[in-house]
């Protein structure tokens, strides 16, 4: 190696490696993995409690509306499908992603509002956080999911606003996508385990 010469400038070309996936997407993937473990723990605890109960739902507690929630589930899955469609449009021509992204937001909002209405109905029927083990698990598990759905919906709305203004980067859409797919993907499992 030659010593640096005085009076001259040595230009060092750094070879910088590009990340495999955008940092935002990677961060969101790690977050989603931890959240999946949270839900797995809650599902496991619920399954053990339910199997140890002699009567389920507990006496005096309403049955969860499995059939009625099927519509919400379908809306959420359709929202995820609309987001896949939005991604494909975005990769071809950004402007064409506006409609599918708006559809994804509206379907997601429908899910959140319907879940809120369902909660009110369950509260009226006497299912509260402290009324029984069913109530405790229902509001904790479904409540955590609802919290995720609201935050993910806010991220989708933010994404849509940026798309409207022409500021949306591909990585930002990717980050919102990962979060929304997690919310939509884990819901059918919760629905089948908790509601049935």
């Amino acid at each position: 190696m030659n010593p640096p010469a005085y009076g001259s400038v040595r230009v060092v070309a750094e070879q910088r490696r590009e990340p495999l996936i955008p940092n935002g997407v990677m961060g969101m993937l790690i977050f989603v993995v931890t959240e999946a473990m949270l839900f797995a723990g809650l599902i496991s605890a619920f399954t053990i409690t339910r199997s140890s109960a002699v009567v389920w739902p507990p006496p005096g507690q309403p049955r969860l509306p499995f059939e009625a929630t099927a519509l919400n589930t379908a809306a959420l899955l359709a929202s995820a499908a609309a987001l896949i469609w939005a991604r494909r449009c975005f990769d071809r021509n950004r402007r064409t992603a506006r409609l599918p992204l708006a559809i994804a937001v509206l379907l997601g909002a429908f899910f959140v509002v319907s879940q809120g209405a369902e909660w009110l109905a369950m509260l009226r029927q006497g299912l509260t956080l402290t009324s029984s083990q069913l109530g405790s698990f229902f509001y904790v598990i479904v409540g955590f999911h609802a919290l995720h759905a609201v935050v993910a919906l806010a991220a989708l709305v933010y994404t849509w606003v940026r798309l409207q203004r022409g500021w949306l980067a591909s990585s930002q859409l990717g980050t919102a996508q990962v979060f929304w797919y997690f919310v939509a993907g884990i819901w059918p499992i919760l629905w089948l385990v908790v509601y049935r």
Binding site: M37, A40, G41, I43, S44, A45, T47, I48, R50, S51, S52
Partner: peptide, 13 residues
Amino acid sequence: AVSLAILKGTALL
């Protein structure tokens, strides 16, 4: 039933 649920939970986690 409880044993099976615990086993399933352990496997899942």
